[in-house]
Design a binder for these strands. Sequence first.
DNA 1: CTGGGGATGGGGCCC
DNA 2: GGGGCCCCATCCCCA
Length: 441
Amino acid sequence: MEISSHQSHLLEQLNEQRRQDVFCDCSILVEGKVFKAHRNVLFASSGYFKMLLSQNSKETSQPTTATFQAFSPDTFTVILDFVYSGKLSLTGQNVIEVMSAASFLQMTDVIGVCKTFIKSSLDISEKEKDRYFSLSDKDVNSNGIERSPFYSSSWQEGSSSPHSHLSPDQGTGGISGKSWNKYNYHPASQRNTQQPSAKHEKDSIKKAKRLRLSQPSEVTHFKSSKREARTSNSSSHISQSEEQAQAQTDAEMDSGPVGYQYGQGSDVTSRSFPDDLPRMQFKCPYCTHVVKRKADLKRHLRCHTGERPYPCQACGKRFSRLDHLSSHFRTIHQACKLICRKCKRHVTDLTGQVVQEGTRRYRLCNECLAEVGIDSLPIDLEAEQHLMSPSDGDKDSRWHLSEDENRSYVEIVEDGSADLVIQQVDDSEEEEEKEIKPNIR
DNA sequence: CTGGGGATGGGGCCC
DNA sequence: GGGGCCCCATCCCCA
C-alpha cells in the first residue's frame, strides 16, 4: 500500500527543517549570502554536490561549506527552492541564469525545463508575430495597443507563456514540465509600458553590439588554435549559458528594470505605431537587439544559442554563419590571399607557391620559400580527397554529435594531415572548391 | 609592454 | 528567406 502524499509531505518537512535551520549540515556561500541545507538533499539533487560531498564523505562530522561565484544568490534561491519543493520559479528574466546555475550544478532536469521554457518563448514569439500581421485595425485601439489579449485564449489551452513570472503561489511549472499552461499572461498594454523608449532602444542596440558573445561551447575543436583550446578549457560546463546570462544582465541594465520580456522575441517593436508598418522591427528575446528582418533575427539568435551549423570540412571548426565559414575556408585552407605570408609581398602563381601545413594553406614567395628551405613534398591526393570530401554535405550532420565524437573527428582529420607540403594551386579551380566544401558556394 | 596584423564573429544590407 | 559582401569590433599572436 502506498500513501501518495508521503513524498510531498517528506519534502515539505525537509523544506521546513531547512527554513528553521534544523539538522542543516551544509552551508552554501553565494556571493556572500549563506544558504543552509542538508547534505543528503543536495547530494540527491545535484551531480555537482554529489561529487563534492562524495569527496568530503570521510569528514561527515564536519559541516560542509561550498562557495559559488558563478551565479547570484537570487538564482541559487530558485534552485534551492526547487530542490526542496520540486517547484521551479522560472521567469523570462531569470531563466538564463537559472539554466547556467543548473548546468554548473549538473541538474539536468532543471536544464531541460529551462530549455523548454526558452524554446516555448521562441515559439510563442512566432505566434505573437503572426498574430500581429493578422491584426486588423479593429484589434488596435487608439494608442496602438491590442485590445484583445490573444494569449489568454491560445495559451490557456495548454501552450506555454514564458512572459510571466512564475512563482510557487502563482502556479508553478513542475520539473516534469507538464504545468506550463499555468503561466500567467501579461496583457499587451502592460508589456507596452515596459518597452524601452526609442532612444533607449537605440543605445541598447549599440551596447548589444559591443557584447561579445563568443560561444566556446562544444563547437570549438580547432586544435591548431591556442586561443580556442584555452577558451574551451576555461569555459568548462557553464561557459555558454553564463555568457548568455551576462548578456541578459547587461541588456537588462541597459534597458531599465524590465527592458524586455520573453515572448517579445521577434516581436514587432513598432506595435505602438500601427500606421507605420514598414518600420516594423524584430526584437531579440534574449537581449535588446532589434533587427528589421526576421531572417536577421534568426541569424542573430545563433549568437545566443551557440548554434554553429556550418562545419569546415577541412578542419572541423564550426561556424554560425555560412559566409564566415566561406571566409575561413578561403583564408585558411585555400590560400586565396595572393600575399607571401613571410615577407607580405604580393605573389602570383609564378612568383610564389602555396604551402600546406596541416590543413592550413598559405602562400610564400619563391625567395621566402628558398629561405625557409622547404622542399616540395609529394601530396597524398587520395588522403587529401578523403580529408576534404564532405560527408554528404549535411550542415547539421555533426551538429548533434557529442563533444567527444566531434573531437575525435577533428583529431582524425588533423592527424592525417600533419605533413608540411607545397603544392601548385589553380586559383580558378571552381570545381575543386565545390568538391571540397559543398557548404560553401 | 606595445603596436600591427590575422582570425573571428556580429550587424547592415543588397541581390 | 538565404547567400553573400562589406564594415567594424574584439581577441589573440607575434615581432
